[in-house]
């Protein structure tokens, strides 16, 4: 018994050491990007996609939903920051958290969809994102800037927004690391595997799902806000672009849903690949993204980390 507990402790130690290691590598690397004069834009978006894919993982990998309208949270966040800053003269550092709040409010509005499952949920999510886009598109032009979008004016500050994005990423990853070991995380996973059984085992399924859903909605909304600040402009076409959902899903799946490291690795690999392709064949970019998705589903449906853990189940306890 005692020996067993000790073994468990050592597994935990490896787990958290690995997590700390990965965390500090990411931290040091990204922190030094502006200092060393590396490509700020590339790394900004890398962090954005790591955050998006990781937050998406909470809804899909942990809770078992496939929100194909995930971009709605991102778009609402982008517009919240833009409108608050531009029209209500809010300071940015107040507007950004409010973007997250907007994401949570939207997630609460969508909460009734959580009783759907499988493709029904996916389709409804897609439709709701479409409705969001149309509603914002048709709001008065004084508010949302119409088809020209909203310019944030002279507030752009790439390096500052870069570090804010980094902070958001760190908070997101820490949250998910916590979640993956927490009781809420276990309840979510049980709900994903068999909601009725989980309920009969005493899990308050609706509440647990709602918590997961809110976590999953908060971060993309903040990402939308930070990106609006970074690019200095927001319009409905880009803020609600379905490609944002596509990329988020693909990156998360590529790495492996349900693990902490999966979406990070997936985002890093795919964003890097994307950039490479983009430079070489700018026209073929979309085509290759599409083909990559097909190949991924057919040949690596569990993603990089998921496939590895399938081959080496005994590593599950050590790899975050």
């Amino acid at each position: 018994m005692a020996a067993r507990s000790r073994a468990l402790d050592s597994a935990d130690r490896i787990y958290f050491t690995l997590a700390a290691l990965i965390g500090s590598v990411l931290l040091v690397y990204f922190a030094s990007v502006p200092l060393l004069g590396l490509n700020v834009a590339f790394h900004f978006y890398l962090m954005l996609w790591i955050t998006m894919a990781s937050a998406f993982n909470v809804a899909s990998g942990f809770a078992g939903y496939m929100p194909f309208g995930y971009v709605a949270f991102y778009g609402i966040g982008a517009f919240t920051t833009a409108i608050l800053v531009k029209k209500a003269a809010f300071p940015l550092f107040l507007a950004l958290p409010l973007s997250g709040v907007a994401g949570i409010v939207l997630a609460l509005l969508f909460a009734p969809t959580l009783r759907l499952s499988g493709i029904y949920f996916g389709i409804v999510s897609l439709a709701l994102a479409g409705i969001c886009r149309l509603v914002i598109t048709n709001m008065p032009e004084q508010l949302t800037g119409g088809s020209f979008g909203l310019q944030l004016g002279s507030r752009a500050h790439p390096v500052q927004s870069f570090y804010v994005m980094m902070a958001v990423m760190v908070v997101a990853l820490a949250t998910i690391l916590w979640l993956s070991r927490s009781r809420l995380g276990k309840a979510l996973r049980a709900t994903r595997d068999d909601a009725d059984a989980a309920e009969m085992m005493g899990v308050n399924v609706p509440i647990v799902r709602l918590y997961g859903w809110l976590i999953s909605a908060f971060f993309p909304a903040v990402c939308g806000g930070v990106e609006a600040w970074y690019t200095n402009v927001v319009d409905t076409e880009t803020a609600f672009n379905t490609l944002t959902t596509a990329k988020t899903v693909i990156y998360a799946v590529a790495g492996g849903l349900g693990t902490v490291t999966g979406p990070i690795l997936g985002a890093v690999a795919m964003v890097w690949l994307d950039e490479l392709i983009w430079r070489q064949f700018p026209l073929l970019n979309l085509l290759i993204l599409g083909l990559a998705t097909i190949i991924l589903v057919l040949f690596l449906p569990r993603g990089i980390v998921g496939t590895l853990l399938r081959k080496k189940p005994q590593w599950r306890r050590y790899i975050p």
């Binding site: 496939m66 194909f68 899903v249 693909i250 979309l286 085509l287 998705t293």
Partner: peptide, 24 residues
């Protein structure tokens, strides 16, 4: 596709890819 864990949902994702590729 039939070999994956959840073919129905994965088909959604795969055809997402087909859709992007075809449009491109």
């Amino acid at each position: 596709l039939a070999r994956s864990d959840d073919p129905e949902l994965m088909s959604f994702l795969m055809f997402y890819g087909v859709s992007i590729a075809a449009a491109a």
